[in-house]
């Protein structure tokens, strides 16, 4: 579904991603692990289009998307979330979800004038869908609140909500477990699994919490110094000597 080939990206003299290649198969929850500074977040930004690679290509659903801007990648079904949840502070929770709904006729500027009824019908459908998502997440009482006022955990849930609103095929999750208490973490894991099973959403997840990786992810890809070290199921990757080295090396610092 997603294939990275020979990606490279450096910042000044530091090469964050260096000749990195791997694929993500449809329907999987693929884990991406690696020590701090291994290039995981840079990889996500390269895939989502926030950064352009210096070399290599990104292929999504058989199409080379290396040169596409972020919004065009989103419309093809690629969604990226952030380690620190991002939201539109001054937009309400409901509006935040509505912005994430894909391929709306209102996006075409002329449709606002020429096909007002169609736009309004679609807008109403999006609002209804957003209502359902809020119910699913338990955020319904906060629909009219500016999203900037939500707690950290609620923002995490809102990010999942954006995932559900978009018609995404592949979701890039950046550390869903970071800064979340155990109860909420279980809830988030459970929702990721249900989205994967019932909607067939594919996930690529950066995660440091090894319990979460063990429960959710198969396969797991470990990267270090900007390139793939080992790929396989969690048990294989965890016990691989090079992986142990990479993490112990970091601990040694």
């Amino acid at each position: 579904m997603l294939a990275l080939t020979g990606l490279r990206r450096s910042f000044g003299g530091f090469t964050a991603v260096d000749d990195c290649s791997f694929t993500v198969s449809e329907g999987t929850i693929t884990g991406l692990i690696g020590p701090n500074g291994a290039g995981k977040t840079t990889l996500f930004n390269l895939v989502a289009g926030l950064l352009r690679p210096e070399a290599g290509s990104v292929t999504f659903l058989g199409e080379d998307i290396t040169a596409l801007p972020p919004h065009a990648r989103f419309r093809r079904g690629l969604l990226r979330t952030f380690q620190i949840p991002q939201e539109f502070h001054r937009l309400t929770v409901l509006e935040n979800l509505m912005v994430a709904a894909a391929a709306q006729p209102g996006e075409e500027i002329w449709a606002n004038w020429l096909a007002g009824r169609r736009v309004r019908a679609r807008e109403a459908a999006v609002a209804a869908r957003a209502g359902e998502v809020l119910d699913f997440l338990g955020l319904a009482p906060l629909a009219g609140t500016p999203a900037g006022r939500l707690s950290g955990g609620q923002k995490k849930l809102l990010e999942l909500g954006r995932t559900m609103m978009s018609e995404a095929r592949l979701v890039l999750l950046d550390e869903p477990a970071a800064g979340v208490n155990r109860t909420l973490l279980r809830e988030i894991e459970d929702k990721i699994e249900r989205l994967n099973r019932s909607l067939g959403l594919t996930f690529l997840i950066i995660e440091h919490d090894m319990e979460t990786v063990a429960r959710l992810c198969d396969p797991v890809i470990c990267i270090a110094e900007g390139r793939v070290l080992v790929e396989g199921d969690f048990a294989t990757v965890r016990s691989h000597p090079q992986v142990l080295d990479a993490y112990l090396g970091e601990a040694g610092l």
């Binding site: 926030l50 919004h71 419309r75 990226r80 952030f82 991002q86 912005v99 996006e107």
Partner: peptide, 10 residues
């Protein structure tokens, strides 16, 4: 509000 997130939201 948030240019990066907007771009990533299509």
């Amino acid at each position: 509000d948030n240019p990066d997130l907007a771009a990533l939201s299509g």
